[in-house]
Design a protein around this nucleic acid. Structure first.
Lengths: 197, 197
DNA sequence: CGCCCTCCTAACCGATCGGTAGATTTTTCG
DNA sequence: CGAAAAATCTACCGATCGGTTAGGAGGGCG
């Protein structure tokens, strides 16, 4: 094994940190531009200016590189959305969720593609209901806060709205001039009508 | 070249027809079950009980096999939806579109996966607006028929509703017990509220 | 019979994949 | 400076990919 420290916790070197960050960055670019299949170890290494053996010195496998890149992109999105949601009051949190998510993805199109590609390509179980559960909970809380009717299927509502978010983002990736803010407002309107006043 | 007739038109042999149909069928199964990457020529050949060279006797390339499988699945969907839409009157055609599409995809989950996988994996330009343009036109016609307001953005409405359809189907693929009919009705309701009475 | 056409097999090709082994350079630090 | 540790390189491995080549079995037909 020519591999790095495996067992104990130890603070990473500066170079180590920088290299890892660089590798994550170029991996996001590659996956975003050329798809999951286009992000081979050789391609990652070349874009980072090193050899693939060096890449595997910093990460145990290719899957680990892609996973780290995915988590990096996802963490930024989650943090952004969480901040926006907490700043709103209960009744408006679903709207804040939709707006901030669409907004974030607009500002970071490569992260968007990275997240989508990773979601499609890692194995198997992708339950939309699980993915949009946080949104479902916000919708449920908002519905109660507004005194809406109790027979609403929040799970399905969240799945539909989530699909709408995905579609808006996909359209923006295709047409950079697409007015995602207006589309998000449209989606928020459709959501609000099912939540009552 | 050990390849088949290339130039002229000629009616295919019975064996030829059967083999092609079988290859399309097993390719749909493979892509649906193991993803686009899992549908290698060797895998297709093995499941069909022949060698991969024989597969390439009936189709020029692997891409042609997958394309044929995709077109087969897509044609069935389009025909089904078109029939349901034509049977409805203008004001209700968007609803018929949503219901029939969700219904068809529920009844043919493998076709669904095939279509999704093909859409993700063939190169590049996938404009959601183009994909849902037929729906957008139905929505526009229905809005006019109902005397709705003229400032509605049908393009965005179609994109959002289309995304909702995708999400409902994805959820059904994950949870076969999911009530897609109810979800489709929920989506139709959300759509109807934006179309006016 | 002998010829041809359809359908298929066995064997191979070059490219690329993720990953490994061991030597070698570069950095850190006493 | 000099040794240890960190970072990287060259070279290779086995597997798999899509695709090609040459040829043979078998039926229809003159």
């Amino acid at each position: 094994m020519t591999r790095r420290r495996e067992g104990a916790t130890a603070e990473p070197t500066l170079i180590e940190r920088a290299r890892r960050a660089q590798l994550i960055e170029v991996t996001i670019e590659l996956v975003a531009d050329r798809g999951y299949a286009g992000a081979s170890l050789a391609a990652i290494a070349e874009r980072a200016g090193i050899t693939k053996a060096a890449v595997l010195y910093h990460f145990p496998t290719k899957a680990a590189v892609v996973r780290a890149a995915h988590e990096h992109a996802l963490a930024a999105l989650v943090a952004d959305v969480a901040g926006a949601v907490e700043a709103a009051d209960t009744a408006n949190r679903p709207a804040a969720y939709v707006r901030s998510m669409v907004g974030h993805l607009r500002e970071h199109p490569r992260h968007t593609r990275m997240i989508i590609e990773a979601m499609v390509h890692d194995d198997g179980d992708h339950d939309p209901a699980a993915r949009w559960r946080p949104l479902a909970e916000l919708i449920d809380a908002a519905r109660i806060a507004r005194g809406g009717s109790g027979d609403t299927d929040v799970r399905t509502t969240a799945i539909i709205v989530g699909g709408g978010i995905d579609a808006i983002v996909a359209e923006q990736l295709h047409d950079p001039d697409y007015d995602t803010a207006a589309a998000a407002e449209h989606l928020v309107e459709m959501l609000d009508t099912t939540l009552g006043p």
